[in-house]
Computed example of a mutant assay.
Amino acid sequence: MTKTALLTLYGRAWCHLCDDMRAALAPLLAEFGAQVEIVDVDADPLLEARYNELVPVLVCDGVELCHYHLDVARVRAALAMRVAAAS
Rank of each mutant, 00 (worst) to 15 (best):
62 G>A: 01
43 A>W: 00
86 A>V: 10
37 E>D: 11
5 A>F: 02
25 L>C: 12
85 A>R: 15
13 A>S: 14
47 L>G: 03
82 R>F: 04
61 D>C: 05
36 V>G: 06
18 C>E: 13
66 C>L: 02
52 N>T: 04
21 M>C: 10
56 P>Y: 10
44 D>Q: 07
27 P>C: 04
53 E>P: 00
72 V>I: 03
39 V>R: 10
14 W>K: 09
50 R>S: 10
29 L>V: 11
9 L>V: 09
1 M>S: 14
13 A>D: 12
42 D>A: 10
49 A>K: 14
25 L>K: 11
51 Y>A: 01
18 C>Y: 05
30 A>N: 09
19 D>W: 04
1 M>K: 14
23 A>G: 09
27 P>H: 02
50 R>G: 01
7 L>D: 05
75 V>K: 00
77 A>K: 15
86 A>W: 07
43 A>V: 06
87 S>V: 11
58 L>Y: 12
45 P>G: 07
37 E>A: 14
84 A>V: 05
55 V>H: 05
9 L>T: 01
24 A>W: 03
67 H>S: 08
67 H>W: 13
6 L>Q: 14
56 P>F: 02
4 T>H: 07
67 H>R: 09
52 N>D: 10
2 T>F: 08
80 A>D: 14
68 Y>D: 09
14 W>P: 00
16 H>E: 14
46 L>Y: 02
14 W>M: 01
37 E>Q: 15
56 P>K: 01
53 E>N: 04
4 T>S: 14
59 V>P: 00
56 P>L: 11
16 H>I: 09
26 A>S: 13
1 M>R: 15
33 G>D: 12
56 P>N: 03
11 G>L: 06
55 V>P: 01
63 V>A: 15
41 V>G: 07
69 H>D: 07
62 G>P: 06
79 L>V: 08
40 D>N: 11
15 C>R: 06
11 G>A: 06
39 V>C: 03
68 Y>N: 03
1 M>W: 08
17 L>V: 07
58 L>R: 05
63 V>Y: 02
18 C>R: 10
16 H>G: 05
82 R>A: 10
36 V>K: 03
18 C>F: 07
73 A>W: 05
38 I>A: 12
12 R>N: 04
83 V>W: 06
39 V>K: 09
17 L>F: 10
11 G>S: 14
39 V>N: 00
9 L>F: 02
4 T>K: 13
31 E>D: 11
81 M>C: 00
50 R>A: 15
83 V>F: 00
